[in-house]
Structure formats: structure tokens, C-alpha cells
Write a protein that binds this DNA or RNA. Structure first.
Lengths: 401, 401
DNA sequence: GCGCCTTTGTAAATGGGTTAGACTAAGGGG
DNA sequence: CCCCTTAGTCTAACCCATTTACAAAGGCGC
């Protein structure tokens, strides 16, 4: 891919806005230092962002004897972005202002059987309609949708969504037709949206090379280099969950044997616990996982052993990632991290030296995502924000007098 | 890392020169099409390259009725680059002209016991001296050295070289002091130099994302994105050989258990064969590997079984790489590929679908490096060439009238 | 030989990008 | 009122690639 000077403009624009959102209110000087750009460049970019209605000046601050700093903040009164998290049993929709704080939300329950594209789109539309009423006149700048499975960015959806047997579904077009909304739609899978979310919000901001590990029912990773999501050749980079960690291991739902997901995916964790504990897991997956976390906290041996076993496999898998990619940072994310992270992450960190090589081990930081927020829909919205900015920056609307 | 407009200039310059070297003699028009740049840009870059003495016009060619094409070629009469391949038992030095063809070479045998930095440097100096006599007045543009183990690019050498116990050796400085040569020195490990070699020469040219798999006594990988070697946080990206493929597997020399190197490194391959065949391997590792290749060709069952077993592990390892990185291309390289590639690569390709996911599998091409050349020293020289170009392009010596 | 065509290569103009430095704005303090 | 400090903008310079126009160089028909 050829890279043009527009790309660096856009990247710098992203960098400025990311810092601005994270540290708001802040000043141009501080942004310049944070982004390593000159004050003039930041000033340029900020002027444009203000003109686009993305940023506003929001008061001034004493500067100790000189001209007071003008404080900048995202224009929370401007347009909104919508992020949708589609999973097998629910559709979760959130509305964000330009500071990426949640303005509104809507939720739809789905039956597992309701898995046709039309049905899923119906639920999205229902959620969107409810929210749109309350939204009034505020402009929608973009719509990001996270779908489970392989998502072909350009076209729609292909390949496997765990249980839905979709192939080459022109989802984007179908959704656009149904919604009758003249708004750009961005599709991707949760691995990608979470990574973009970490890029705009989480600990990934400003880190050159990082990986996000998403631990849930399925597991996977997202990679980001130089402030950009790494997609790979077919937007399927990061399928860490289906890397083999034991060629003679148990069958994975993907067809291969001994994938790491078959050891550290939520079902595998709960199965292990059930084996050790003897009693059958009660209730839903999430309830069972919460029970495991509680049992671990209480020091129950079966829970402690389960966590240790899982951590051992996880450490080996993380080490593989660390040895191969040599990132500066690995962030743990996903609902299993939310439930069991306190137990799991330190155990993994402790075991990592046994598997990872010295040099990459020294360079890497492990972190657990502490945010309460739904990173999937947040990331989907961030995707829409990126799209909005690049669209506006491409039209050639540079307004130099 | 901030990227400036200089970077794109340099990248375009690399792209042009790569195509020029590969397809020489060629014309500006063809280069423009190949690199996707405008003719004018290519013309600019070529003018500079000519001025720098890197490229020369070398005749003209009929163009079917129009102005004849001016043919361009690397200036093979200009300066030279030197690439050094340091291994445990030898120092192999090659001198290249700007077309990266070998002009001269020198070889030093080393005892395994001669592993102090001073001794290694002594051998490099000896080889260099012999070559320098024959070189006459030709300018040396750069010196690239490949060292086994972890190489910290900025400083020298650190971490493990399999048997040498070097730590934080200021190798570059020591080498510069000893050689008394006013020439920039570039250090890296074979994984990195081979990858750069593939970038300039092999099948990696013009590929957006590719991985090189180096199969030898040790095994490892190199990654390259957008025409650039990916180094990772500490220049140790690509340690694929020490990714775990079986946490309960055999001990690896790196300390961990069940690394893929413990299954598909040359010693492991030969050990497997010995187990099946019953007789002890005769002669050196390379001789034994050649014997295995011959036996496989002859259809001996023990050899066939050995290849199959190795291919099975290799396929799982390659699939891990493919699933995680989603590259367009994987190139097999290293001396084991040279000896056993005919047997191994097709077997791996056949087994890959059982381990890799559908989407990344469809996108990836597997290739065996066909070149006879020593990619290690070639890549080291290419590293020096890159350094030479970037040095010259940074000085701000743009000579616009 | 003379237009006319085709193809190649270059020069100038254009437009996108960053930056240094001059300049303006705004306030503090003697 | 003058000087100092800090913040922000504007201008000019520079870098890069590309578009557009043009010059160079040859073939071909007449």
C-alpha cells in the first residue's frame, strides 16, 4: 500500500484528538508536547477540528503570568456516534457524544434461534428506533456495528459466526436499506472494535505496538501498530484463540485440535472447574463464572486449582504472542477478564517468565482493562469516529484562506 | 513514533531501487508502473540516485515508434557493500556491488571454543583484510554483520547467543575500533538480515505483509509490513521458534518446554530419524540432513515418516503464524529448507488446512526460497545499503535547482 | 523532407503536509 | 508605563508527490 502525505495528516489528527478526549480539558501546548508535534501543527489541526464541530474552546486557564491557556474539549453538544454490540443472545446499542461518553442506550434480547441476517437487522433497527426518538435533532455522525465472526470490512460478513451459518452476507447493504439512514456504517468483529476502543481510550493510547487479549466465550486478540489497528491481509489478523498449543489436544469448535480457545475459553474454564469440583455448574455461563470468581476469592481449592491450570495455558499463549510480536503492552479484556481478571492476570504474569524469552519479556507490560464500559460498542463507535474524521479530511476541504 | 514526509520519500526510494535492482535494466516508465508512483516522482528519485552514484543510465531501448527508453541499472562499478555471516563455526564474508551481486568473498573457520568477542572480531578482521587487498580503491559504503542471538541494534549484542555467553557486549564499537574503517556498521541477527534480504531480493518484494520462516539448527521467523522489517519493541520480534506448541513437550535449550524449535530444529529432525531408522546419524549435521533428503527421495519409510512427523508440527506452527498475523506470503528459508525443502514444503502445505482458519488460509501463499545465495550475508549487505540510502537522504542534500 | 503520431523524460505549477520564527494577544509586576 | 512571561496565530519556507504542459526523440506516410 502506498502511503501519502494525507495519511500522516490523518494520523496526527487522530493522535491529537485521542489525547484531547482523554485529557480534556487541555490546551494546545500540552497537546503538542503529548503528541510530539509542533505547536503550529497542533494549532492547525485544532482549528480544523473546531471548524468541523468536533472540538470546542471551553474557557481559559491561568498560566502563571502569561497569556492564559485556552482550554479545549470535545464538543459534547455536537453530533453523536452509535456503537452496536451484536452477540448471540443480545443486541446492545449505545449512543456516544464526541467525548465518547454514553448519552443513551438500548438493549434487545435475542433468542439463539433468531440468527438470520434479517432477524438480527430487525433487532438493531428496533433498538435504533427507540433511541432515535429520544435523540431529537442531534446529528448521527456514524454507525459502528460489531458482529461475531469473520467480517469482511468492504462488503459485509463472511465465514463463521460461531453458530450462525452466514456466508458472504451483504450485511452492510442490507442494514443500510432497512435503516433508511444516510449515515456511514462500519462493520467489524469484536476483536477489532475492542482494539480500536483501547486505542482511543484504554491503555493503548500512544503505545507503539500493543496487543489486546479478549477472553470471553471465545478468545482472540487484536494487534495495533503505530496507533493503527493491524488488520492483516483479510482483516482476520489476531486469531490468537485458534493458534494451536497442543496438536494432540481436544477438538475445538473451529475444527482444529488443541487451539488455545479449547483451554481458556469460558466453557473450557467452567468445564475444568466442574471436573475438579464435582458438582454441575449452575445457571448461565456468566453466573457460573462469577461463582468461580467468588469461590477463588474464598480460597476454595478447586477454584484455585482451576485458575492455576487456566493461567498456565494462558501464560504459554501470551508468551507465544510476546515472543512473536514483541509488543510494548498486552491488555487483557473481555467479560471473562471482567469476572476473573483479579485472579487470572497476576497468575499469568507470574508464570510468564517460564515461557517467554528474556528480551521481549523485559519490554512488555501486562495490564488489565479496568474500565467498566462496554468496550465492544465503544470501539464500534470509535471506528465510526475514525471514519467520520477521515471522510471529512479527504474531501479536500482544507480551508486555508 | 512520529512519521514525517521524509519517511515516505525514503520508502518510495527503497521501492524504486528494489524494483530497479530486480528488473535491471529497466526504464523509468516501467518502474513507475511497478511502484505505483507517478513517472515524475520516479524521475525525481532516479535523478537523485544517479547523482548519488547508485544508479547509472546504461543505454537505450527501442520503444516502438517513440522516443527510446533510457535503460537504468545499478551502478555496478560504484561502491561496494560488505555482508558478514557470523555463525558458531565460521565467518563468511561477501562483497557486493550495488546490484547486490557477489564481487568477492572470504571465509574463516572458527573453533566452537573461539567464542569471545575479541576472537570473533579477529576473524572478521582477518577476512576483511584479505578482501580489502583485492578491492583496491573501491569505496566501501557500509558493513552489515549478522550475529547469532539477540542483537540490540543501537548498542551491540545482548542476551543469548546459543552457546556464547555474551551479555551487553558493545560489539559495534569494538568492531569499529579494531577495523579502523570509517564506514557505518550495522548489526543484526540472521532472522532479521534474511528478512531484509527477502525484502530486497526474494519473493517478499512488493508484498504488503509477509513472514519468513528460517529453518536451521535453530528456527525462527522474520516479519515485514509495508516493505519494512518489523522489529518489535526490542528488536526481538519473530522468535517463532520459541513459541510453545506443547506445554508438556521436551525441554528446549531456551529453558522453556515444548517450543516448536524442539520439534523442527535440525537436531530434533535428525533425532527423530535416528529413532525410526535405528542407526546413528553419521557425520556432521548438514551431511546427515543431506542423507535424510536422499533417503526421502529414495522413498525409505523411516525418512518418509520423519518428514511427515516434522511437517505435522511445522504445519501447526505455520498455522499459528498465519492465524495470528494473517500475512500474504510465507517464505521458507534456512539451510534445512535448502536440504529438505522439496520434501517438507509441499507436506506442510497439504496439512495446513487442518490447522489454519479459512480466511487467512485463503489469503496466504507459501513459497520456498529458490535462491542459491547466502541470504544471511546478502541481507546484512542490504541492511548496509538501506543505511547508506537513508543517511544520504537525511542530510537534506536535496539538490533542486 | 515534412508533417503527424507515439513514446519518453523533464520542468513548472499545484496542493497537501510540517515547522521555525516573527508577531499578536493577554496578563503580571515593578 | 515598561518589561517580562506565556499562549496562540500567521507567514514564509521547505519537503513531498502529482498534474499538466512541454521538450526530446524516433517511426511512418506522403
Amino acid at each position: 500500500m502506498k502511503s501519502t502525505s494525507r495519511d500522516i495528516r490523518l494520523r496526527n489528527c487522530f493522535a491529537v484528538l485521542r489525547h484531547l478526549i482523554a485529557d480534556a480539558p487541555t490546551s494546545r501546548q500540552i497537546l503538542a508536547r503529548a503528541t510530539d508535534l509542533s505547536v503550529a501543527t497542533v494549532s492547525n489541526l485544532v482549528t480544523d477540528l473546531i471548524e468541523l464541530g468536533v472540538v470546542v474552546e471551553v474557557g481559559r486557564e491561568d498560566s502563571g503570568g502569561g497569556r492564559p491557556r485556552a482550554l479545549l474539549a470535545p464538543n459534547t453538544g455536537g453530533g453523536v456516534m452509535i456503537g452496536v454490540d451484536v452477540a448471540e443472545t443480545y443486541v446492545h446499542l449505545e449512543v456516544y457524544d464526541l467525548a465518547l461518553t454514553v448519552v443513551d442506550r438500548a438493549e434487545e434480547r435475542m433468542e439463539v434461534s433468531e440468527n438470520s441476517p434479517e432477524q438480527v437487522i430487525g433487532h438493531i433497527a428496533a433498538a435504533l428506533d427507540r433511541v432515535r426518538e429520544r435523540l431529537g435533532e442531534r446529528e448521527i455522525l456514524g454507525l459502528g456495528v460489531s458482529l461475531p465472526g469473520q467480517v469482511d470490512v468492504a462488503w459485509g460478513v463472511s465465514g463463521f459466526a460461531p453458530n450462525w451459518n452466514w456466508h458472504d452476507v451483504p450485511f452492510r447493504q442490507m442494514l443500510a436499506d432497512r435503516l433508511r439512514l444516510d449515515v456511514p456504517i462500519y462493520l467489524d468483529n469484536p476483536l477489532k472494535t475492542i482494539t480500536v476502543g483501547e486505542l482511543w481510550f484504554g491503555d493503548g493510547r500512544g503505545v507503539e505496538r500493543f496487543a489486546v487479549l479478549i477472553l470471553g466465550t471465545g478468545v482472540g486478540a487484536g494487534l495495533a501498530f503505530s496507533g493503527q489497528l493491524y488488520r492483516g491481509a483479510t482483516n482476520s489478523a489476531g486469531e490468537w484463540g485458534h493458534t494451536t498449543i497442543n496438536p494432540a489436544g481436544p477438538q475445538c469448535r473451529c475444527g482444529a485440535k488443541g487451539c488455545i480457545e479449547a483451554y481458556v475459553g469460558a466453557p473450557a474454564i467452567l468445564w475444568q472447574w466442574a471436573q475438579l469440583d464435582g458438582r454441575a455448574a449452575a445457571g448461565s455461563q456468566t453466573e457460573a463464572m462469577a461463582a468461580l470468581a467468588a469461590a477463588w476469592k474464598a480460597g476454595e481449592p478447586s477454584a484455585v486449582r482451576t485458575v492455576e491450570t487456566v493461567a498456565e495455558y494462558l501464560a504459554a499463549g501470551v508468551a507465544n504472542l510476546v515472543n512473536l510480536v514483541n509488543p510494548d503492552l498486552v491488555v487483557f479484556d473481555g467479560w471473562v477478564t471482567g469476572a476473573l481478571g483479579d485472579a487470572l492476570v497476576p497468575e499469568v504474569e507470574r508464570r510468564l517468565p517460564a515461557h517467554a524469552m528474556e528480551a521481549p519479556l523485559k519490554a512488555v507490560r501486562l495490564k488489565r482493562n479496568q474500565q467498566e464500559r462496554n468496550m465492544v460498542s465503544l470501539g464500534a463507535a470509535a471506528l465510526a469516529l475514525e471514519g467520520h474524521l477521515s471522510r471529512l479530511n479527504t474531501v479536500g476541504s482544507r480551508s486555508r484562506r
